[in-house]
C-alpha cells in the first residue's frame, strides 16, 4: 500500500515555501499584496498542522472509501480518459463540498480556518483546517469511489486539485484573458471568494474549473470599483494556531449548550453560519443572506450598479 495514497500536496510543499518567498520579494519590489510576519507564520503553521492531522486521520477516510468501493458497479481502471473524467468529477464534488462548507455550520467550523486571515497571499493558501477528518469532509468524495474510479487515482486528483489552488491565492496576478477566466478558477475569481464585501459573499466556490459557479449561479465577477476586503465577518484577534483551529468548534459547542430544544440544537449544526433562533439573547449575529439583504436595502440601486460595474483589468 506504500505510495498507494501518495498525496501531491506533500510533494509540492517545498515549492510552496519557495514561491511564498518569491512572492514576498516580488511585493517588496512593488508587486501588489502584503505579508505580515505573525499572519504569515500562523498560516504556515496551520498548513503544517493540516498535513499532520490529515495523515493522522487518514485511516478513517481510507476505511470509509474502501468500504464504499467494494460496492462499485464498474472497474473503471487507469485509462487516460478515466484520469480526465476523474479529475473533472473530483472537481465537481469539490465544488459541492465547498458550497456546503460555507452554508452548513458543521462544515464551516472546519473550513473557516482557511478564510480567517485578513491577508490574501500565497501563505493564505496554506492556512488549512486541522479538523478535516472530524468534519467528515471526506464524505463528499465518496461517490467517486462508489462509481468505481481507482482509489489511487481519486486521491491523486484530489491532491492535484489542491495544488492547483495554491497559486490562485495572490493579489500579484490580475485578469488572465477571457478564455482562461471563463473556464478556470483564477486569482481574480478566488479573491472574490475570500472577500467579505457583501456583494462577494458566498460566491466562486470553484476549485479548478470556474464553470461550476457559472452553471449553478454562484459566480460573481471581481470589479475595480469594489476591491475585495479579506477575512471573515467576525475577524480573529489572535495568531495562536490552536485558537485559530478550534475557535468555531468551541463557539458552536457553546451555542448548542445554550440552545433550548432539540430543533434549535440541530439547527446550530446544520443551519448557515450566523443563524440564531428568534429569541436568542447571547449576542445578535447575521447569516450572509441577512448581510446581503441588509446591504441591498441600504445601498442605492445606482451604487449597486456602480460596484458591479467594470470587471477588474
Amino acid at each position: 500500500m506504500d505510495n498507494f495514497f501518495r498525496d501531491p500536496v506533500q510533494l509540492a510543499t517545498p515549492f510552496f515555501f519557495l514561491l511564498i518567498l518569491l512572492e514576498m520579494a516580488w511585493i517588496r519590489r512593488g508587486g501588489r499584496g502584503e505579508y505580515e510576519p505573525g499572519d504569515t507564520a500562523t498560516s504556515m503553521m496551520m498548513g503544517l498542522g493540516n498535513l499532520v492531522t490529515t495523515i493522522a486521520g487518514a485511516f478513517v477516510a481510507v476505511a470509509a472509501y474502501l468500504w464504499v468501493w467494494q460496492f462499485r458497479p464498474f472497474d473503471i481502471g487507469f485509462a487516460w480518459w478515466a484520469w480526465v473524467l476523474c479529475f473533472v468529477a473530483e472537481d465537481f464534488f469539490y465544488y459541492v463540498f465547498h458550497r456546503a462548507a460555507h452554508r452548513v455550520r458543521w462544515f464551516w467550523a472546519s473550513h473557516v480556518v482557511h478564510h480567517s486571515s485578513q491577508h490574501y497571499n500565497l501563505s493564505t493558501a496554506l492556512r488549512q483546517t486541522w479538523t478535516n477528518t472530524l468534519s467528515l469532509h471526506f464524505i463528499f468524495r465518496m461517490p467517486l469511489f462508489l462509481v468505481g474510479f481507482e482509489p489511487a487515482m481519486i486521491i491523486f486528483c484530489a491532491g492535484a486539485n489542491l495544488v492547483y489552488q495554491f497559486w490562485i491565492h495572490t493579489e500579484s496576478v490580475g485578469k488572465m484573458g477571457n478564455l482562461f477566466e471563463g473556464v478556470m478558477n483564477t486569482p481574480s475569481h478566488h479573491r472574490v471568494h475570500h472577500a467579505t464585501n457583501p456583494r462577494y459573499l458566498d460566491a466562486n466556490y470553484a476549485g479548478v474549473f470556474i464553470v461550476w459557479d457559472r452553471m449553478f449561479a454562484s459566480f460573481v465577477e471581481e470589479t475595480a470599483e469594489d476591491p475585495p476586503r479579506y477575512g471573515i465577518i467576525h475577524n480573529l484577534g489572535t495568531f495562536n494556531p490552536l485558537r485559530v483551529a478550534f475557535h468555531e468548534w468551541i463557539a458552536m459547542a457553546g451555542d448548542i449548550r445554550r440552545a433550548r430544544g432539540l430543533r434549535h440544537k440541530l439547527l446550530f449544526f446544520l443551519a448557515p453560519p450566523g443563524w440564531t433562533p428568534p429569541d436568542w439573547t447571547y449576542g445578535s449575529r447575521q447569516t450572509t443572506d441577512m448581510i446581503k439583504a441588509e446591504w441591498r436595502a441600504q445601498t442605492s440601486k445606482a451604487r449597486q450598479r456602480a460596484l458591479a460595474g467594470e470587471p477588474v483589468k
Partner: peptide, 12 residues
C-alpha cells in the same frame, strides 16, 4: 525562517 525573512524584508 520564513517568519524571520518576512520581518527582515518588511513591507508591512
Amino acid at each position: 525562517a520564513v517568519f524571520l525573512i518576512n520581518r527582515w524584508l518588511g513591507g508591512f
